[in-house]
């Protein structure tokens, strides 16, 4: 279950919510639940890490009409 992945923030949140739901429903064997719990806490750690390092990125897309930059 533990593996290096390139999941996006939203995907991680979605997975976390999925795990919370499974544990809440108590529908899986306890052994599976313990593995899921481990995965969930790992996700939480990663998510917090992402938030702690969050920095707004601005990507500039150059406009194609620049001759008369009458911006206002």
């Amino acid at each position: 279950m533990a593996k290096k992945d390139n999941k996006t923030f939203e995907e991680k949140v979605t997975r976390l919510e999925e795990i919370v739901k499974i544990l809440d429903e108590d529908s899986e064997p306890l052994e599976t639940q313990l593995l899921l719990f481990e995965e969930g806490t790992k996700l939480i750690h990663e998510l917090r890490q992402i938030l702690n390092n969050a920095e707004l990125k601005i990507i500039n897309i150059s406009s194609s009409t620049n001759e008369n930059p009458n911006f206002s």
Partner: peptide, 10 residues
């Protein structure tokens, strides 16, 4: 957390 894709516009 966002990325802004900025397109300077007249």
């Amino acid at each position: 957390l966002c990325t802004i894709y900025f397109r300077p516009t007249l």
